[in-house]
Computed example of a mutant assay.
Amino acid sequence: MLRKLYAWTLSLAGRKAAEAWLALIAFVESSVFLVPADVLFLPMALARPERAYRYAFVATAASVAGGIAGWMLGYYAYEAVAKPVLEFYGKLEAFEQLKSHVTEGQLNLLLVTSGLAHLPPIKIVTILAGVAHIKLWHFVLSAIVARGFRFYLLAFLLRRYGEPIQAFVEKRLGLILGAVAVGLIVLYVAYHLLAG
């Protein structure tokens, strides 16, 4: 099922309404969808590099708006809506464990790492931020910084290097951003171990 969903999402890049689809995919990715918006963003930015930054803006704005929707699901409708969604994706048990052990500082870190590298998936963190009653303005600011950095970095790389960088972006950029996210987590843990 995931492979078909991925292929379908990729097929949207060639449509006239690709930009609207990008906004929709970026929006729902942040709260309920499995396939990241990058799948659509990459071929669109490669096909029209002069619009790469525009696409980055669309993806960032829609992703932040979707994150707000996820936050609201967690804040206002966890039992009725968010819990069944998490259960559908098989993430409920992991979410419940995370919810019972996460501190506000750890959640702030997760907002950044999920926005940069999907560690953990952004939909988990947006819902968790709502459940934990993280201030909405704080949530929105961190989402703009993390998601904006990711999409604008992709736009910069694709505009500057074009198609030759596509394989690097698809295969290694996620690993590099994942390594940055893990590094941030290690620094956070080390700081708290030394301070405490």
Rank of each mutant, 00 (worst) to 15 (best):
G66M: 13
P49E: 01
I134N: 00
L111N: 15
L12T: 01
P84K: 09
A18N: 06
V32L: 15
I185H: 02
A190P: 04
L34N: 00
Y75V: 04
V85D: 12
R159S: 06
A155H: 03
L194M: 15
I127M: 03
L141C: 11
H118S: 15
L110K: 08
V28S: 13
G162F: 05
G130A: 08
L92H: 02
E29Q: 06
G174N: 13
R3F: 12
A26T: 03
R150S: 05
F156E: 05
L5N: 01
R160M: 09
I176M: 13
L128S: 00
N108A: 15
V35H: 00
E50K: 00
H101N: 11
F41T: 04
A143W: 11
R54A: 09
V145A: 10
V140F: 04
G178Y: 07
V81T: 02
Y53A: 02
A65V: 08
M72K: 05
A179Q: 11
L157I: 05
A117H: 08
Y78D: 05
A155I: 08
R51P: 00
L86Q: 11
L22S: 04
V140R: 07
G174L: 12
A45C: 03
F41P: 00
T113F: 09
I122M: 14
T103C: 03
V182Q: 08
H138T: 15
R51T: 01
S11A: 15
F168Q: 02
A167M: 06
A167F: 10
N108L: 14
Y6F: 14
R172C: 05
A82G: 11
A26W: 02
F88W: 12
G74H: 06
F41Q: 01
V28N: 01
P36V: 09
D38P: 09
P49F: 01
F156G: 04
A195S: 13
R172L: 13
L128Q: 09
L107C: 11
Y161G: 03
L42C: 04
A167D: 12
G66L: 10
I144T: 03
H101K: 15
L40V: 10
A190V: 13
E170Y: 01
E50M: 00
L2E: 12
R3E: 14
G115T: 06
K91F: 14
I127Y: 04
A37S: 15
E50H: 08
I122Q: 12
E29L: 12
Y55A: 00
R150D: 06
V32S: 12
G90E: 08
M1F: 06
L12I: 04
L40Y: 07
F139G: 07
V102T: 15
V145Q: 10
V182H: 06
G178V: 07
F88V: 09
G105F: 01
K16G: 14
